[in-house]
Amino acid sequence: MDYRDWEILKVLYSQKNLTKAARLLFITQPALTNRLKQMQEELGVKIVTRESRGVHFTPEGEYLVRCADDILAHYNKIKEHVRNMSNQAGNEIAGTLKLGVSNFFANYELPHILKLFKGQYPHVDFKVITGWSKDVTKLIHNKDVHIGFVRGDYSPRGLKKYLLLEETVSVTSKEVIDLVELPNLPRIDYSGDFLLKTLIDNWWAENYIQPPFISIEVDQVDTCKKMVLNGLGYGIIPSRMLIDTEDLYKIDLMDQDGNPILRRTWMYYHMESLEWNVVKAFVNFIETMATD
Rank of each mutant, 00 (worst) to 15 (best):
R4F: 12
R4P: 00
D5I: 06
L9H: 08
K10L: 15
K10A: 08
K10I: 06
K10F: 01
V11E: 13
L12G: 00
Q15T: 12
N17M: 05
A21Y: 01
L24C: 04
L24S: 10
I27R: 02
P30A: 09
A31R: 12
L32S: 10
T33D: 08
K37R: 15
E41P: 07
E42G: 11
L43C: 03
V45D: 01
K46M: 12
R50I: 09
E60W: 10
G61I: 07
Y63G: 00
A68W: 09
A68D: 04
D70T: 08
H74R: 09
K79N: 06
N84H: 12
L97Q: 07
L99S: 02
F104M: 06
H112Q: 13
I113S: 05
L114Y: 12
L116T: 10
K118H: 15
K118V: 03
G119V: 02
V124L: 10
F126W: 00
D135R: 09
T137H: 01
Y154R: 07
S155R: 15
E166Y: 10
T168F: 00
V169Y: 01
V169R: 04
V171E: 06
D178K: 13
P183W: 08
S191D: 05
G192I: 01
L195Q: 12
L196S: 01
L199Y: 05
I200Y: 00
E206A: 15
Q210H: 03
T223M: 02
C224M: 02
K226D: 11
V228A: 02
N230F: 04
I236S: 04
M241P: 05
L242W: 08
D247H: 07
D252P: 14
M254Q: 10
N259F: 06
P260I: 01
P260C: 01
P260D: 00
I261E: 00
L262M: 13
R264Y: 06
M267W: 03
Y268N: 01
Y268K: 07
Y269C: 11
E272L: 06
N277K: 04
V279W: 01
V279K: 07
K280Q: 10
A281F: 09
F282I: 11
N284L: 11
I286G: 06
M289W: 15
T291C: 04
